[in-house]
Design a binder for these strands. Sequence first.
DNA 1: ATAAGTCGGTTGGAATTCCAACGAAAGAGG
DNA 2: CCTCTTTCGTTGGAATTCCAACCGACTTAT
Lengths: 219, 219
Amino acid sequence: MKNYLDVLKTVRLFKGIEEADLQPLLSCLAAKSVRFEKAQTVFSSGESIEKFGIVLSGQVQVVQDDYYGNRSILGKIDIGNLFGESFACAEMKTLPVSVITTTESELLFIDCHRLAVPCAKACGFHSRLIQNMLSIVSMKNISLTQKIEFTSKRTTREKLLAYLSAEAKKSGSSHFCIPFNRQELADYLSVERSAMSAELSKLRDDGVLKFYKNQFELL
Amino acid sequence: MKNYLDVLKTVRLFKGIEEADLQPLLSCLAAKSVRFEKAQTVFSSGESIEKFGIVLSGQVQVVQDDYYGNRSILGKIDIGNLFGESFACAEMKTLPVSVITTTESELLFIDCHRLAVPCAKACGFHSRLIQNMLSIVSMKNISLTQKIEFTSKRTTREKLLAYLSAEAKKSGSSHFCIPFNRQELADYLSVERSAMSAELSKLRDDGVLKFYKNQFELL
DNA sequence: ATAAGTCGGTTGGAATTCCAACGAAAGAGG
DNA sequence: CCTCTTTCGTTGGAATTCCAACCGACTTAT
């Protein structure tokens, strides 16, 4: 079995931890690696989880089935990323989503409580791990809140202006690039691509902004 | 100065901690209480914060100023609740929001790093505190994600069905109560109250659901 | 009892968005 | 050079939402 060191050192949860310390750390955390076939269920909605996962190879999907049984994909988790950490940390009694593999995958599981409780050997990584985990969940929190601020605006125009002015403010300049193409931006803001495109043109005609591809300038 | 014990024991961050242990815990965390006048700035956008706050008395607002200087209120934080914890835990370099008092307020500040790092006295509350903090941020995370799932639907009808079917699933029954009145539900789903009301009636006429006040039943 | 306020449903026209389709521009690959 | 693909702007009619206003049922205060 591979030890996936090359993957582990890119995982945000382990940021600031020396490569040589990773293996002892994992055994201290009682981390367990499990191989899954394609299209297997990793977590099933309704159950209660104490462990979260890290994708060492392959890919998993977080899916949700509604009241009528319609399944929708909430997200895809690629190599090096975490899944289920919010549910495990929040100590939910019943998981509202399922996690399934889309390909053959190697997944690493870590118990949430092991993170918080200092280990018997009093190893020095715990506070770093805790800070990393808090940071990961908090940053997700901030970006979700921001997205809601944009999408809760009433019109496409307002959503665009809210998003673009936030990007301008973040970059500290009226001239900035956005990390989306038009379709992705439309999906992010929950609007129609064509309607958004039209609105961008109108904003340009109104003298509110200029743009070329994904470069924008607020006037 | 009051010690606000009655408030502190209701704070989610301190859940599971004995009342008698609160004072030593706070000194261990180097928590500092500060009194603010009405309409004072607690955190200012652009700065970097390591501490988050707990409202012991009064109320604060989280506000955001956009590129054009328009201020919008992101939320009000009442007695016993936390503010700034996501930003402090995420170690943001520049705060995107400001926090201001709406009334004269007593605020308790706690350094985020003190939570993660075991104290010199090796007091036994840290792991509990850490779990509580992780739980608080994670639960916020989950509810934000869920709200986005609802609001990102295209039509009012779909938003309603997504929300209501989630409530039905959560309650484990086709008959359930919702914690909103019509206006609050409309605000939560980012739709017009009257349009939503009309759509609810249409759903009833279509035989999809029944409702009386805030009691609903999916058919 | 009356008045005032709140809450929720209804309605109609204005405004906006959705949808499908098309065309132009740019890039990839043969 | 040509073809295929992707991206993005445009357009027009259908569908939906927004907005303001109104009404009835209930509750609360005077």
